[in-house]
Design a protein around this nucleic acid. Structure first.
Lengths: 213, 213
DNA sequence: GCAAATTAATGATTTATTCAAG
DNA sequence: CTTGAATAAATCATTAATTTGC
């Protein structure tokens, strides 16, 4: 019997995005795309196949990984930042605390705007201008730092955020009428099954999370 | 602006397996199928559609969930068992320890055979006959209880299946001669796919883990 | 017996972790 | 070290079982 390792045997090579492909993907991401659905993946794939070999799953994984690792970085960065702030801000207030650098009882809250993955620190969970506008126990209205509501590329309207357990739920209506569509090589990566897309809204509502720090 | 809730609006209903479908799936599972590939999922789906409405992703999710929850149960059961054993076996050895029921410094290792999801306790991480044959830090060779490692000529399919929202992405190398085709009420009793395991082997390489308890 | 209420199972998604290619 | 690829774990949400008060 032979020793098996995790390596796959003789799989050609893994996809590596061309500069053009990467640029396009990053642009999509920058514009707020996080969880592309099957149709969007298909369109993107089709479009990007003009620039080189690519499959739908490459696009899928790219967004998944990019989102996760982006969040990782942001989390780490803001964690440090919050520690910093705690020294400057919370020390005078929290005079009892002897350990000023510890964030074990840090009551800051990190708010998250899912469509852009922007974060904002609210010390003590209090309100902050441009952040949470109204905070009742059940409903919150979020005002974006930048006005995304008039974005033409990605029509975001009727955005709504509300707490859900530890997490945040944001609902927004997105009208995706400007998906890149394929012109030159349309049929290359068509999926085998018919697909329907109704989960733009769902996308935005379910994937929102606030980081628990 | 109205308050939206997380509930999906009027999504038809979630799949619930009929007794026949469930029996078949469990039989497959019992025989060792754990990570059906896209082709297998399609075949199973096609076959089971004789008994009621079903989609590929249902099959996919079923195996994923069944495997995970099976493992959960086994882990919990064996954890209790190991605590039991610890009292009987480790107490005389570990005379210093005052808390004999604690498993915080329990050095037992739970080995796992991916193809069958059998578990085996190895006290102190030592070897045991019929189980782990050789265990270095990186490589393990497992001796199967039954010879599932014999794979037929089923070529390693470079296909993957991926649920995405309500949609379903399937990527595979389209070589039409190994695509199972689905006529309406197909092939009721056909042994549609080899349960012989090209992905047992894959399984073993990818998902073999020893649970750290 | 029988619904309403509660709890347990389990289908469906998302997130975290892992491994290896380059 | 970065990141594509893949799987496992955690979580959410809905259905089925079960209990409970009448």
């Amino acid at each position: 019997m032979q020793v098996l390792k995790r390596e796959k045997m003789a799989r050609p090579t893994r996809w590596s995005p061309t500069p053009e492909q990467l640029m396009f993907l990053e642009e999509m991401y920058r514009k707020g795309l996080r969880n592309p659905n099957a149709t969007q993946i298909q369109s993107i794939t089709c479009h990007l196949s003009s620039f080189g070999k690519i499959e739908g799953k490459n696009v899928f994984y790219w967004f998944q990984n990019h989102k996760a690792r982006d969040r990782q970085k942001l989390k780490k960065k803001l964690l440090a930042q919050m520690n910093q702030q705690q020294i400057l801000v919370q020390y005078p207030i929290d005079a009892h605390s002897t350990t000023t650098t510890s964030n074990s009882n840090n009551n800051n809250t990190l708010f998250h705007c899912p469509s852009t993955d922007h974060y904002q620190i609210c010390p003590g969970g209090l309100l902050q201008e441009g952040g949470i506008k109204e905070a009742s126990s059940q409903v919150m209205t979020y005002v974006y730092p930048m006005d995304l509501s008039r974005s033409t590329d990605q029509n975001v309207e009727n955005c709504m955020i509300r707490p859900y357990g530890k997490d945040w739920i944001v609902m927004m209506n997105i009208t995706p009428n400007n998906l890149p569509y394929c012109v030159d090589r349309p049929l290359k990566t068509l999926p085998l099954f018919p697909i329907t897309t109704t989960d733009d809204l769902k996308d935005q509502t379910t994937s929102s999370t606030s980081l628990s720090l």
